[in-house]
Nucleic acid binder design. Structure first.
Length: 189
DNA sequence: CCTACGATCGTCT
DNA sequence: GACGATCGTAGGT
């Protein structure tokens, strides 16, 4: 198989579906990715990198194959795989997966959850894998085992106010762990 | 099944 | 000072 970093250096819309079915291991738990979203740096008003480089998003500008972790809503972490050539701030958000190894550990991190929901959703996935800001910038070589997704579907991204129309969410058909589509809530007041 | 709401704080303006 | 690439709970159908 070609070098992981080389594969991830391609355009984000080509890299995103490549991650479907991939096994991602961290913190003693392995997840098989079932749903991801593409974020295309400066061309994408939904991207954290749309207004340029900041301290938070600098991993997106670095080499491909590294983890970009951010903290949101005062309580949740979400993680992305940086991709595209160095200097181009694109990334793929890991939205959901199926726990395929270390399930007892994952259960202990999310007490009361059903097995299906352990890594269903970007913040739950980070919780199941014990990922927080300490993992920002982590090199994913040896943690990501790419599969060969023969078939996938695409549709609008979840929960964004801007550029919500772009069909840049990718998922494996028929997977129980794929989130239902929830459009962003309009602001009142 | 579904929709509505609020928690809570780092980041950027 | 405003807002968010979310989630869990509450309550209705």
């Amino acid at each position: 198989m070609a070098d992981l970093r080389e594969l991830l250096a391609g355009p984000v819309l080509e890299v995103a579906p490549l991650l479907l079915g991939a096994a991602f291991t961290h913190g003693g738990v392995t997840v098989r990715l079932t749903e991801v979203e593409a974020y295309d740096g400066p061309h994408d008003s939904g991207s954290h990198a749309f207004r340029g480089r900041t301290r938070r998003n600098e991993v997106m500008f670095g080499p491909p194959g590294h983890l970009y972790v951010y903290f949101t809503y005062g309580m949740h972490h979400c993680c992305n795989v940086s991709c595209g050539p160095e200097g181009e701030p694109s990334a793929v958000l890991l939205r959901a997966g199926e726990v395929v190894d270390g399930i007892e550990t994952a259960r202990s991190r999310r007490p009361g959850s059903t097995d299906r929901d352990l890594a269903r959703g970007p913040a739950r996935l980070c919780r199941a894998l014990s990922i927080d800001l300490a993992e920002n910038g982590l090199d994913l070589a040896d943690r990501l085992e790419l599969a060969d997704p023969r078939r996938f579907e695409t549709g609008p991204r979840v929960g964004l106010r801007h550029a919500a129309d772009r069909p840049w969410r990718f998922w494996l058909p028929g997977e129980a762990t794929v989130s239902r589509y929830v459009p962003a809530k309009p602001r009142v007041r």
